[in-house]
Write a protein that binds this DNA or RNA. Structure first.
Lengths: 196, 196, 196, 196
DNA sequence: TGATAAGCGAGACGGTACGTCCGGTCTTGAG
DNA sequence: CTCAAGACCGGACGTACCGTCTCGCTTATCA
């Protein structure tokens, strides 16, 4: 999803275009939505042209994915000691990731595109779930050992619960209705759900 | 979302076209996905032409919504006595609704369209949540009275939990991995989550 | 070269677009020249878009030919009695045809295009020469009979002489240097050249 | 139009590239015509690359002009004693210059380019007419003195007559129809036209 | 003889213009 | 007012090619 790399020979890319395009993509996405977003409009707003975009990203979907969900976003998840705090962190990360206006505008469109492009599907879901799922798995294992979590709780199910709830909440609720109270309610339900 | 009604005068509509178009829409949707779906292709497969479709539905989104989520689907939810069974029924309904191939293909596309059409958004979310949410609310109230559910559990949160989990599971898992075991796990988590 | 006709069924063309495009073509041609002329610019100036142009003319060359040398221009050549006057008329027609700014801008480009498209070549040369050459042939035959023209004078050669001189004069001279004096000189040379 | 000169310092140009490019230009020009001719294709056929060409000629037009009409071609016109022979020589030179396949392919393109580049126009017309027109002027003056030419005949007009006829003949006739008979006819017309 | 300067090949870049697809509308002629 | 048929207008697409630039290297002239 990162702009397609190129060989060493030849004129190097102007990295300012990369940045300007990503910025323009996010801005336009928030204004007009995924379906109304056009490559030409992005290029114009970024002060460049279509071929410059197609050299870097093969499709609109790849560009949007890269602009809205940059790869570095998810690398490190802070692990506190308390299970409840860690679950809460995960919920907050999910809300953060999915709740941003650009993300709300982008996600349904990206999911719709994955129907025709399995490679893209892997990219989208992979980057979204990537490190988070592994991290959750390890955290729950530790929780089982500590007696805080039932042994038959599957990390995949918990992951789907957290991700799904965050997705539906950001999609169906007005943004300001996803507040601390809501988060506490959800964390409460999950903690009791996975607890012994 | 039902085909737009028309005045009484003049030649009446051929209702066989309504059905043929809906059938063609679902079939093509499963084959090519929402974004690749074109009105022209639907018209051709249904043995008619574009104007006949535009007379009935204003946009592709309205047509797909009507074809994939017909209005009568959700009116009655069977209520057993046991809370666990009723929650399970709700999860199964969600999976049924979202898990069908046509629904998996349609939903992200429809959600993407709602960004530009609030009326459509109300239709899509309304029909999906409509009766179900009211029903859940009443069932949880009864559960609280029976001492099976904590008093501070909000039906909206539980609804989001169920709907979200079903959505993510159908979107991320292969279809055959959403089986009875998975359902039991989810129901288990929810029951413990909302229990006293 | 006339806009491609189409079947009777379906929506009829907007003839105002035909006219606006031809007008825009001539205007832009005079401003920027044949090579700098673009289909998109013509469409924009005509208040329409590229597909509307491509529906009517297959290439820029066909459009320019149709706009600059409309078919009806050449149908009737007034024949006076005097040979000298008729030759003069022919020279004036040639200058008129080739001397207009749009024609000066269009011709070299059109000739360059004919290298790759024999059908276009026939169209361009045919329309230019068409009736004129036949007319000249008959006029010279009559001249021979009247003893005003040598019997071995070939009409093709005379035609090439007149057309070529007009072309080179309009191409190499400033426009205002192609005046009545110049015309008289040329007619004089030709009259003596073909006379007995 | 000669390859742009460069400073003395640094690595000198490889003159074999100059020649190879000119050769490739003429060959490709005859095959595909002026408009379809691309710098990239010339570079490839000449066994080099685009920057090497752009270092030598600023545009395709300059390169083609230099390759098809090299500067040394016209410097000396053999003058016989007889006026008719000299006029004939001029016609033959014109046919030679304009009749070669490369010239037929190049000229309309070059003329089309001159619309946007007055400097090029001067180059193209200047090289074509240059010495020839001066020579014709002097020859006609001598003819007047010898009583072979009318005093009011203008050399510019005669020049346009010869050049134009040659141009149109090479453009409109098949090459093999421009033979000795045709030349004799034209020379005859001109001789009678300018004679006393 | 080492520094300077311009050439060379290779190849990608930024950007203009292209020709096409297709979405939604309109017209015709019949029912 | 609907139907079938089909062309229309116009927005957006993805691509071809132009002229430029950068790279790593070579080949001359000049200090």
């Amino acid at each position: 999803m990162t702009p397609t790399a190129h060989a060493l020979a030849g004129r190097p890319r102007d990295t300012r275009i990369d940045d300007a395009v990503r910025r323009a993509t996010v801005e336009l996405l928030e204004q007009v939505g995924y379906l109304q977003l056009t490559i030409a409009a992005i290029a114009e707003r970024a002060g460049t042209n279509k071929p410059a975009l197609y050299r870097r990203w093969p499709t609109k979907a790849h560009l949007v994915h890269d602009a809205v969900f940059p790869p570095q976003d998810l690398d490190a998840i802070p692990a506190s000691g308390a299970l409840r705090d860690d679950i809460r962190t995960l919920v907050v990360i999910g809300l953060d990731l999915l709740g941003r206006p650009a993300a709300r505008a982008a996600l349904p469109g990206l999911l719709a595109e994955t129907a025709a492009d399995p490679a893209l599907e892997a990219d989208v879901l992979g980057r979204a779930a990537g490190g988070t799922w592994t991290w959750l798995q390890q955290r729950l294992d530790a929780g089982v050992e500590a007696g805080e979590v039932r042994a038959d709780v599957k990390s995949t199910t918990v992951f789907e619960l957290i991700a799904g709830t965050a997705f539906v909440a950001t999609a169906m609720r007005p943004l300001d209705a996803v507040d601390d109270t809501w988060i506490d309610d959800v964390v409460d339900l999950i903690m009791r759900g996975i607890g012994p």
